[in-house]
C-alpha cells in the first residue's frame, strides 16, 4: 500500500449503509436507513419495541435480505456477496451477540467447546492451543477456568451471556452486532455485563452496532446514537448531544420517560 492509500483506508468507513428498507408484507420493518460506521466506533440504535431495531441489525449482518438499499463492508457489497463468503465473514470479521444466549449457545457442548467452535471453524486443529485460548477467553469474561468443561445449562443467565460474548469474540472480529445484550438480565447483573462490555470494546478496539431500548446502556457504551421510530431514523448524533439535547419530539419523549423511571 502507498502512503496515500493507507491514509484513504483510514478515511474509509468500516460499514456504509444506504437507503436500507425491509418490509414484512405491508408492514414496515425498517425504512430508508442510511449511516456510516467508522473503525473503532460504537453506534447505539435506540427506540421503543417494534421500531425496527432488530430488523435493521439482521439486515446489516445479512441474516435477512432487505428489499432496498446497499450495505458495504470495507470495499465489499454485503448483499451481493455469495453466501459462502458472507458466512465466512460472519465467523471471522464479524460477531453477533443476541439477547437470549440460550438460543445461540450449544447447550449440549461444554463452555470450552462453545468458545472453541469458531476457532475450529476457521481451521484450528491444535487441541491444546484451542483449550488455552478458550481458557483465556473465559477469564476475560470473568468465568472461572474450572468451569471450562461444564455445560452452559449449569450457568446463570449472566454467565450464559458472558459465554456467548466470549464465543463470539474469540476470533478477534472487527465488527460486532449486539441485539439487546443486557435484556432479560437482573439490574445488578446488567451493570456488571455493561462494565465488562465497555472494557472489551475499549481493549480490543471493536467497532460495534448495539441495539437496545435501554438508554442507560447506550449512555455508557455508544459514541453515537440513532433514534428509530416506526422503522425510520428520526434523529442521530453524538450520544451525549442526543440524550441531553434531543431535537425530535419522539426523542424528547423517550429521554423524559427514562428520566421519570
Amino acid at each position: 500500500m502507498t502512503v496515500m492509500e493507507n491514509i484513504s483506508a483510514l478515511n474509509t468507513p468500516l460499514l456504509q449503509v444506504d437507503g436500507l428498507t425491509k418490509r414484512y408484507g405491508a408492514r414496515i420493518g425498517c425504512a430508508d436507513v442510511s449511516f456510516d460506521l467508522w473503525p473503532g466506533e460504537v453506534l447505539g440504535i435506540v427506540g421503543e419495541s417494534g421500531s425496527g431495531k432488530s430488523t435493521l441489525l439482521s439486515c446489516l449482518a445479512g441474516h435477512q435480505t432487505p428489499d432496498l438499499g446497499r450495505v458495504r463492508y470495507e470495499d465489499r457489497d454485503v448483499l451481493a456477496m455469495a453466501e459462502t463468503e458472507r458466512r465466512r465473514l460472519s465467523r471471522t470479521d464479524w460477531a453477533y451477540v443476541h439477547q437470549n444466549p440460550r438460543d445461540w449457545l450449544r447447550m449440549g457442548v461444554s463452555a470450552g467447546g462453545n468458545v472453541g467452535e469458531r476457532l475450529m471453524a476457521i481451521g484450528g486443529r491444535h487441541y491444546g492451543q484451542i483449550r488455552e485460548t478458550a481458557t483465556d477467553w473465559l477469564g476475560r469474561v470473568e468465568i472461572a477456568s474450572d468451569r471450562i468443561d461444564d455445560r452452559p445449562s449449569a450457568f446463570s443467565g449472566g454467565m450464559q451471556q458472558r459465554l456467548q460474548i466470549a464465543r463470539n469474540l474469540v476470533t478477534s472480529p472487527r465488527l460486532v452486532f449486539m441485539d439487546e445484550p443486557t435484556g432479560g438480565l437482573d439490574v445488578s447483573v446488567q451493570a456488571r455485563l455493561l462494565d465488562l462490555l465497555r472494557g472489551l470494546v475499549r481493549d480490543l478496539g471493536l467497532s460495534v452496532i448495539i441495539v437496545t431500548h435501554d438508554l442507560a446502556v447506550v449512555r455508557l457504551l455508544a459514541h453515537r446514537l440513532m433514534v428509530m421510530k416506526s422503522g425510520r431514523v428520526v434523529e442521530q448524533g453524538l450520544t451525549d448531544q442526543v440524550l441531553d439535547d434531543p431535537q425530535h419530539a419522539y426523542t424528547q419523549l423517550l429521554v423524559s420517560s427514562v428520566l421519570q423511571v
Binding site: 461444554s110 467447546g113 472453541g116 475450529m120 487441541y127
Partner: peptide, 18 residues
C-alpha cells in the same frame, strides 16, 4: 454445501475434554 465442518472438531474436542 459450504464445507463448514468446524462442528465435527467440536465433537472431538468434547471427547478429549471429557
Amino acid at each position: 454445501e459450504l464445507e463448514e465442518y468446524g462442528l465435527m472438531h467440536v465433537k472431538l474436542y468434547e471427547d478429549i475434554a471429557r
